[in-house]
Amino acid sequence: MSSMRGAAAYGRGAGAYARVGVESGVMSASPHRLIVMLFDGAIGAIRAARIHIEAGNTAEKGQSISKALDIVNNGLMAALDTEKGGEIAERLGSLYDYISRLLLAGNLHNDVESLDQAERLLDDIASAWREIGSAAAQG
Rank of each mutant, 00 (worst) to 15 (best):
S2I: 12
M4L: 08
R5H: 10
G6E: 09
G13N: 12
A14I: 02
G15C: 04
G15E: 04
G15L: 07
A16V: 14
A18L: 08
G21V: 11
V22F: 11
E23W: 09
S24K: 13
G25H: 10
M27H: 15
M27L: 15
A29F: 02
A29I: 05
S30A: 13
S30I: 07
L38A: 09
F39R: 05
D40P: 12
G41W: 02
I43M: 02
I43H: 01
I43W: 01
G44H: 02
G44Y: 05
I51H: 09
N57W: 04
T58D: 13
T58L: 15
A59Y: 13
E60T: 11
E60A: 09
K61N: 04
I65C: 02
L69S: 10
D70H: 14
I71T: 11
I71C: 07
N73I: 05
N73W: 04
N74I: 07
L80Q: 03
D81M: 08
E83P: 12
G86K: 05
E90I: 01
R91H: 14
L92K: 09
S94I: 06
L95A: 05
L95M: 03
Y96Q: 03
S100C: 10
L104V: 14
A105I: 08
A105L: 10
G106S: 07
N110D: 00
V112N: 08
S114Q: 06
A118H: 05
E119N: 06
L122E: 02
D123H: 04
I125H: 06
S127D: 10
A128F: 00
I132Q: 09
S134T: 08
Q138W: 01
